[in-house]
Design a binder for these strands. Structure first.
Length: 112
DNA sequence: CTGATGACGGTGC
DNA sequence: GGCACCGCCATCA
C-alpha cells in the first residue's frame, strides 16, 4: 500500500511525548506542503483503536476543538499531567511540544 | 472521474 | 477578547 499524506501526519503526531501538546499548525509545519486543515482531516480519519496519540493535538488557541468525544480527549490529557484553565485552555508556554529535533526551528529560519 | 467530507488558522471588526 | 468569513486539499465511495 502506498504511504498516504495522512500517514506523514501520523508519523509526526506519534513523536509527541506524553504530557506535551502541539497545535494542528505546528504539526503541519513539520510536513512540507501540509496545512493545518489537512492535519485535522487526517486525524478525523483515524480509526477508534489507533495508537496514534491524537489527543495531544489541539488548536492554536490551546483549546480542544469542539466535537463529539472531546471530553475523552481532555481527560486523557489531564491524565498525562496537562492542566486546563477554567476557560478550558492550556498554556502553550508550558506544554508546547518543542519538536522531534530542531527541524521546526529551521523551518522558521531560527537556526543559522 | 465526480462529488461529499472533514479535529484549523489568520484576519478584520 | 470574541465572533464571522474565507481559503483550501487529500481521501473515499
Amino acid at each position: 500500500m502506498m504511504k498516504t499524506y495522512y500517514d506523514a501526519v501520523y508519523d509526526v503526531v506519534r513523536q509527541i511525548p506524553k504530557g506535551r501538546v502541539a497545535s494542528y499548525g505546528q504539526v503541519a509545519d513539520f510536513i512540507d506542503g501540509c496545512t493545518p486543515r489537512m492535519v485535522g482531516y487526517a486525524l478525523f480519519a483515524l480509526p477508534a483503536h489507533t495508537r496514534v496519540p491524537w489527543q495531544r493535538v489541539i488548536n492554536a488557541q490551546g483549546a480542544i476543538s469542539p466535537r463529539p468525544g472531546s471530553d475523552r480527549q481532555r481527560q486523557a490529557l489531564e491524565q498525562e499531567g496537562v492542566v486546563f484553565s477554567a476557560a478550558g485552555r492550556i498554556e502553550w508556554k508550558t506544554y508546547r511540544w518543542k519538536g522531534p529535533k530542531t527541524q521546526w526551528l529551521a523551518k522558521r529560519g531560527l537556526l543559522p
